[in-house]
Amino acid sequence: MVSQITRIEARNYKSLEQVDVALGPFTVLVGPNGSGKTNLLSVLRFVRDAARFGIEDALRTRGGFDRIKRQDGKQGRVTLTLHGNVTSHASTGAPDRYQLSLGTSKGEVTRREEFTYKRMAGQGRRITLSANETAVARIAADGSDQSAQTRRLASSTTTMLGTFAQLNDDEVGRGPSDFLDFLTDIRYLDPAVREARVPSRLQRGSIDDSASNLSAALYELSRVDPDGLEALTRDLRDCLPGLEAIEFRQGGGSAETVVVSLVEAGLTRPIDLADASFGTVRLLALLTALHEPNPPALTVIEEVDHGLHPYALDVLVGRMREASKRTQLLVASHSPTLVNRLEANEIVVCDRDAESGESIIPSRSAAEIAAAVEESGYLPGELWFSGSLGGVPN
């Protein structure tokens, strides 16, 4: 079973005054510009960066605490909470829960952290790790203060998970390190087509966030999973009439690089990625991520339909559903055509209060979407585009 985040809660974060969003293996956010889709996706990116590089660095790269706090003039902490089934003994009835809360005191950023998980199988046996503003952490078993122990974190900016992941398994088990690994491995896929066109150095591993290593990632797929590359080629053929094959050759220069070319019927020579269209390169980057045999446990994709022909969206939705068996997918879309191909439980409609600027997510439940589809006879994308489900510009 794929590890996954089942709920995201966010308070006072950018446009998210208070949202609580349930996620499935494959979830698509839809709504107008400014409704909070990107802000909800960025919750995962912020928590990932804090886990990778530390809280201070995650804030600095975003312009500081004031740039992530909701600008409504009210006092209140930014609080981000993730619920999920990540650690070995997590379950629907006893999920993992990680919370990061940030505020200010005397001009300095303060933080609180809490992580609750099951160390072992069986009834109870839950451990809560917590850390306060002074970087003093606490271990309490089954919520009991009697057995609580304290530790000092490595620094005031190191995440609590990072410190506890280094402790002896006999004391806290694998939970903190497993959850930390999950967070740091989140992929926030936003292909930069200009970079993706450039031949990349041969290296092993997944496609990166910007798809700057697209050529190497495709070559790696051909090496470790030839059947996966053939399936990817079939998907691409369905979207690019005349495509026959994907070819690889070694590039020049001092470093060993790989060049990807597309062989098309009727042409005397293949087309290098450097000369391929924007939509072709972007689609190829998405399909590469979706066909990887061992992807990160969670993949986030911003504007998944950007630059793609509507006919490609049918292929893409089917591929995302299949890929969600290996990597949880949370994506954002503006395309009614794509939404028409979704089930009600795959859709999260995002809206925004025109007066307060507060994001309303979700603005409709999955049950309400399913009922509207059944009663009207229209497809979900048609209902959304018409305004019947909300989530459209006023």
Rank of each mutant, 00 (worst) to 15 (best):
R249W: 00
N39G: 12
G228S: 05
S254H: 13
R204Y: 08
A22E: 12
D66V: 12
L342E: 04
C350L: 02
L41F: 05
L240S: 02
A265I: 02
L102K: 02
G103R: 12
V258F: 06
V281I: 12
E244K: 12
D225H: 08
P241M: 01
L102S: 03
V86L: 00
E113Q: 07
V348N: 02
L243K: 07
E230H: 10
D353A: 02
K37I: 10
T280I: 11
L283K: 09
L214T: 00
E264Q: 14
Q328F: 02
P336L: 07
W384F: 03
R119L: 05
G34K: 10
G266L: 09
D145H: 10
S254Y: 11
L338K: 01
G54Q: 00
A366V: 04
D145R: 10
P95Q: 05
F26I: 00
L240E: 10
E374M: 11
G76Y: 00
W384V: 07
S144Q: 11
G34D: 03
E375W: 06
L202Q: 07
E343N: 14
D169R: 14
A344P: 08
D225S: 04
E220I: 00
T158M: 15
S200T: 05
V30P: 03
T150K: 13
D49P: 01
D72Q: 14
R319N: 07
E302S: 08
P296Q: 03
H89Y: 10
G377E: 05
G143P: 03
D72R: 12
R234I: 09
S359V: 05
A131E: 00
V86E: 10
R97A: 13
L40S: 02
D272R: 10
D185G: 09
A366E: 13
L290I: 00
G381T: 06
H89V: 14
K74I: 07
E302W: 06
